[in-house]
Simulated scan of single mutants.
Amino acid sequence: MPDYLPLFPLNIVVYPGEKLNLHIFEPRYKQLVLDCIMSGKNFGIPTYIQNSVGQFGTEVEILGIEKKYDNGEMDIRSKGTRVFKVLKFDRTAPGRLYAAGEVEWVTYADDEDIVTKTRIRECMEKLYEALGLKSLSMDLKTDFKSFDIAHQLGLNLDQEYALLQMLHESDRQEAILQHLENILPIVLETEKLKERVKLNGHFKYLKPPEF
């Protein structure tokens, strides 16, 4: 039996376990948040992509209201929980201003490949070092999952959404590794180019070739 979930479409991808801070300002979503708080229920964020509401999204738990404004707007803290697939989308829930829909929960296979995971870590460390963000690699947990790092890879919305739809951790790992191996040479070359540009105009000590 599908569950009926209040829905808040946004042009972002939310992953399970992700912390998300939202500023709520539209009347329909102010109503959604208040309804969820009063009922103790969660809501869903389906990804709005290619000018339509995508089939996949993530259930979000409201952790608390950080700030309330005089006009009724709110800053809320939330966290992604489970991924769902929308079976039926209603632009407005019965008697409410906000959208809702029938959803089924997505089951993921935790079949990570340790070799691929090690290669991902190595590529990320090289990437962060090239970008001058070495502290980020220090924060990388040894037991990280693909969803933990997905927002730190420079993926576009389509690529992040594709990861959300992959049911196997091993498939997500392969996709991430391929992305890193594609962009790393470009980033490294760009950094070399920056250094060459910086040196332009400086006095150069160059040893002439022997003839």
Rank of each mutant, 00 (worst) to 15 (best):
P94I: 04
L127I: 07
E59S: 14
K67C: 02
F84D: 07
Q55C: 04
K68L: 14
I24P: 08
K207N: 10
G64K: 01
D158Q: 14
K134E: 14
G54S: 11
L22N: 09
T190N: 11
P6K: 00
I65N: 03
D35A: 02
Y205K: 11
G132A: 05
G54N: 13
M138T: 13
K85G: 01
D90Y: 14
L184E: 06
D113S: 14
V103P: 06
V14H: 07
Q50F: 11
T142S: 13
T58W: 05
K198W: 10
P208V: 04
G64F: 01
F89I: 08
L133N: 12
T81E: 07
E73Y: 00
K194D: 06
H151M: 08
D35F: 01
L34S: 08
L20S: 02
E210R: 08
L177M: 07
G40W: 06
T190A: 15
E191V: 14
K198A: 12
N182E: 10
E102Q: 11
M74N: 06
D90P: 01
L157R: 10
S170K: 15
I62T: 05
F43M: 05
G132K: 07
A93W: 05
E195R: 08
P2T: 05
I149H: 06
G44R: 04
E102W: 11
G54V: 13
D111R: 15
V197P: 00
P46E: 00
I76N: 01
H151I: 03
L163P: 07
N200D: 04
T107E: 15
